[in-house]
Design a binder for these strands. Structure first.
Lengths: 215, 215, 215, 215
DNA sequence: TATGAATGAGATTTCATTCAT
DNA sequence: GATGAATGAAATCTCATTCAT
């Protein structure tokens, strides 16, 4: 059995780090190649039109090899989704954990979000469109946990902004939800081919968030 | 057989009688029952885990009957999706087409959106999660057309607001996109079980949209 | 769903008896046809060399149809095996349940056994060779129950014979086991192509059982 | 790796040292270990549920190693079966080839048979249940040859007994078949968990064979 | 028109076998 | 020789769709 551990090693930060990365850049690991192929294929058409065979072909491996690394087609899908979630959360957390005033943090958050969408277009499409498959308990769980971690970071930053006097004293729970939603809402733009509208618009987004539409 | 399931009213949605009967002459007939059953089933699990048989059973008809009304499973799915889109657009348009100042229109838009999400929870879940299946040309087309119709309504209202002096002079293309995105962003809340947060919060949303977070 | 009830109706004695048998001799029922095809195919080669497709072809139905009637390939196998067991037990019980002295009963038992083997050659081959597949609880259970029912019938008959004075006072438990074993031992003859040796030898078998080899 | 499993002695069978080493020079080597592992695994579940990997694991060798010693899975199965047959025949022949009166020989034959069943329980189960796989020409041939060698030994002993006046003048062909069958019939007892009934019952079996049931 | 038994293409998955190391 | 990752042919099984009733 060479199936990867059930909780996919937090990509890149492998246990005995370095070692493997050195001699084999991640692309040469079969499991990695399969994961990447899966991301491409799954983002190109809906789940039920994807054949495991397609993924295997894209990864340049045999059909059976996919099953050496992932228990099932759904399993593989979840691994792709899950990795995307982890990547996204990692970057978003980093942009809020830096010091500085809340306003700057938010600007950074928006930039990070937009950069992620633009640089991981396929992943973004995939994640937006197929959340449904996550039903099975643990992974759905992982998804919700990530979501709530992000949410509380936003909440804390809002709180900080209020204390700093740069934000109005709003209902923290609701506003953090709304802001996060507002930011995430840019996500579907990536789907509809209008992502070019996002380039260099971070400032405008921040302004809209801070000042609103009103004159 | 033909055991007519009378208690089929869907997702708590109060009948708001009349209205629907107009656009759907076959209401309470087989085709309608199938459509409604499809909506329930499709919103309960991902496309590939739904069997046509399940929908037929839920509708209380034979499997073959489904094919009397819809060419294929995907066809049926698109019909559900499409109907949702039409309903949504109709209500959103109505809320903007009423006269009055832009600010009021927006407040109304937000209310309408929230009401739709709350009253058509299953439909909302479905529409948010499974846009991918719309690929086939004409219906994807219909979807994009509806989207762009809505977008230009928002744009016009923004323009009106700027002319009325109640909105800052923003980039209309971008701001309309952002506002629509912001509103639509409340959609996923319905998915994650936090829709209770939406009740009676329209005003807050409008304030956030108009004034932003800044103090 | 048209899958036959889990506990196969004790073949022939169907609930609303007669009715179906009249208009459709059992061979015209799909489920029946599949069962018979399965018997032929399973008796021709070992389980793992049988394709469900072969059985479907032999039955003149589509591959999917087999699965309409039987949950799996193993399930189908068990149904065949089980039916054989029931048929065999029914005939053996009948031959012992008739009245008369024990000696005659035994003669009849041997005849019945031999006739069954000769007339159900394929079934006999099948049942002798593939008992292993019965592992799953309930059916293994059914098998053991049938076996023990037969065993106690034999035991009773032995007891009767001892009481009638025609048998030596033997250890009933052991002797019944041995006699049943001795009779069943003729079974493998059907496998090795020597079943012709069985014709018209009932008397000799009975003599050997009663008198043994000794002079 | 190559973790040598020392406690591999099979099914309670006391080593009876030396003897086996003679005919199996590779004893305690890879080939031998694989053969023994195969016997254990094959006797635990039907052929089609056994994976070559399972056998390799049980033998403590790699999957590929199995193919260094045996051409295929079926080949390995046949080797197990064949070895069982050879062992059995060797012991049965030995018990008849000793001198002495026919009656004694028979007593010995029964004892030997019972001992074999009890001491090689797994092998016995295997051999009884899976004869079907022997189809391929040569080994089926080997099986039939062994069977017929045993049969003629029995036949000769019967003949001897008749000549010595201790047996009735029976049809030698049929009676030898029946007796051999009778003896072999005790085999299935090992399968059904009633093998404890066999302990110390050789004499009773011989009596039943010689005197029959009759008073 | 309505049905659901029947179908078989095609999906997922398994596993005997190979072969580079 | 020994290994086990990789393979893909072939198996089981599913289910959208058809069509005779």
């Amino acid at each position: 059995m060479k199936r990867v551990k059930d909780e996919l090693t937090i990509d890149g930060q492998s246990p005995r780090a370095g070692e493997e990365e050195v001699s084999c850049p991640e692309a040469s690991h079969k499991g990695r190649r399969i994961l990447e192929a899966a991301m491409e294929i799954f983002s190109s058409r809906p789940f039920h039109r994807v054949k495991v065979e397609d993924i295997a072909a894209q990864a340049g491996v045999g059909k059976g090899t996919v099953y050496e690394y992932y228990r099932s087609k759904e399993d593989l899908f979840r691994a792709v989704f899950d990795e995307g979630g982890r990547l996204y959360l990692r970057e978003m957390e980093a942009s809020l954990n830096r010091g500085g005033p809340a306003v700057e943090k938010f600007a950074c958050l928006v930039s990070t979000h937009m950069a992620f969408i633009c640089q991981n277009r396929q992943r973004a499409i995939l994640m937006a469109a197929e959340q449904r498959l996550l039903a099975p308990r643990e992974l759905r769980q992982a998804f919700l946990e990530r979501r709530s971690r992000l949410l509380s970071l936003v909440r804390e930053t809002l709180d900080q902004g209020v204390r700093e006097g740069s934000f109005r004293p709003v209902d923290l729970d609701f506003a953090s939800l709304f802001v996060m939603g507002g930011i995430i809402s840019l996500w579907p733009l990536a789907l509809s081919g209008e992502e070019n509208l996002l380039h260099n618009r971070e400032e405008e987004v921040v302004t809209l968030i801070l000042k609103g539409l009103g004159s």
